[in-house]
Structures are given as structure tokens and as C-alpha cells.
Simulated scan of single mutants.
Amino acid sequence: MSVDQEGQDPTFSAIGAVSGDRVVVTVAGEVDMATAPALFEAATPDRITGATIDLRAVTFFDSAAIHTLIRLAERFPGTLEVFPSDRVRRVLDISGLGDQPWLR
């Protein structure tokens, strides 16, 4: 599942692959106010109860992106996994979210 990215940074992508009741979303590029909604949409297809978000190819991560992760953690309590890039990990550490149980 690929999310329509018209008008967004052409280097951004959020591609979800559903397996059973879980989605794995691979994200690349900049996650910001313009692209964070596409990340959320890719991570929340119908009938999904868990999500893995791979942010290892993310180069920029702002407060809108942080808010999206918090919304996903609320939507998938106990079943969210997030794999951050070094840059994303630093942003999450600075924001006080570096010890979240969903952060791998």
C-alpha cells in the first residue's frame, strides 16, 4: 500500500505492507507537517491491530512526526514497534520519548 504523496517532498515515502492483522510501514525522507499525515494513513489501514514503523531511512523528524508516533502508540497499545534512524532517535531522546516501550 503506497500513500498518495502529491504535493509532498518527492524524497518522502511511506509504504505499508499488511500481513494478517499487522502492518509494516517503511518510511524514507523527511517526516514533517506536510508528510506526517501520510505516515499515519499508511500505518492505519482497516482491520489492523498492530504496526511496525521502520524509520531507519528518515532524514528529518519534527514535532508533527512526534505527534504522529504518539497517536500511533495510542491506537496500537502494546503492539507498536518503531525502529528509528540515529537522527530520529536523537529527536525522540531530546523530546523525552527515548524510553518508550515501543521504541526499538
Rank of each mutant, 00 (worst) to 15 (best):
58 V>C: 10
61 F>T: 04
47 R>K: 13
23 V>T: 08
46 D>Q: 13
55 L>E: 08
87 R>Q: 14
71 R>E: 02
54 D>W: 06
86 D>V: 14
2 S>G: 13
96 G>M: 10
92 L>Y: 10
49 T>N: 11
58 V>P: 05
66 I>H: 07
32 D>F: 09
59 T>P: 06
16 G>D: 02
29 G>D: 04
20 G>K: 04
28 A>K: 14
12 F>T: 03
70 I>S: 01
87 R>D: 14
52 T>A: 10
47 R>M: 10
27 V>R: 03
2 S>Q: 15
21 D>E: 14
66 I>S: 06
7 G>H: 08
13 S>W: 02
55 L>S: 08
102 W>S: 05
29 G>H: 03
77 P>T: 05
90 R>V: 12
6 E>R: 10
5 Q>K: 15
56 R>Q: 14
102 W>T: 05
32 D>T: 07
83 F>N: 09
23 V>G: 03
77 P>R: 04
69 L>H: 00
13 S>M: 07
70 I>K: 01
43 A>F: 01
74 E>V: 05
11 T>H: 13
65 A>P: 03
69 L>Q: 01
12 F>H: 03
46 D>C: 05
26 T>G: 12
67 H>Q: 14
60 F>Q: 04
75 R>H: 13
9 D>Y: 06
74 E>G: 15
62 D>N: 12
27 V>A: 07
80 L>D: 00
103 L>D: 07
26 T>D: 13
52 T>H: 04
69 L>K: 00
101 P>G: 10
101 P>K: 08
95 S>I: 10
63 S>D: 06
79 T>G: 02
10 P>I: 09
94 I>K: 08
94 I>G: 05
85 S>W: 07
93 D>R: 12
80 L>W: 01
7 G>Q: 02
88 V>I: 09
2 S>D: 15
11 T>Q: 13
73 A>M: 02
79 T>Y: 01
25 V>Y: 00
87 R>A: 15
28 A>D: 10
25 V>P: 00
48 I>K: 01
10 P>H: 09
104 R>D: 13
78 G>K: 01
49 T>D: 11
31 V>A: 04
67 H>A: 15
16 G>M: 00
31 V>F: 08
81 E>N: 08
63 S>R: 04
66 I>F: 05
61 F>K: 02
7 G>T: 06
8 Q>G: 05
59 T>K: 08
102 W>I: 05
52 T>L: 11
51 A>N: 05
2 S>P: 03
67 H>P: 00
45 P>W: 06
97 L>T: 02
38 A>S: 15
68 T>C: 15
33 M>K: 11
63 S>V: 12
46 D>V: 11
56 R>A: 11
17 A>M: 09
57 A>D: 15
57 A>E: 15
55 L>N: 07
81 E>V: 14
57 A>P: 02
67 H>E: 12
101 P>Y: 09
85 S>V: 08
71 R>M: 03
10 P>M: 06
38 A>W: 03
15 I>E: 13
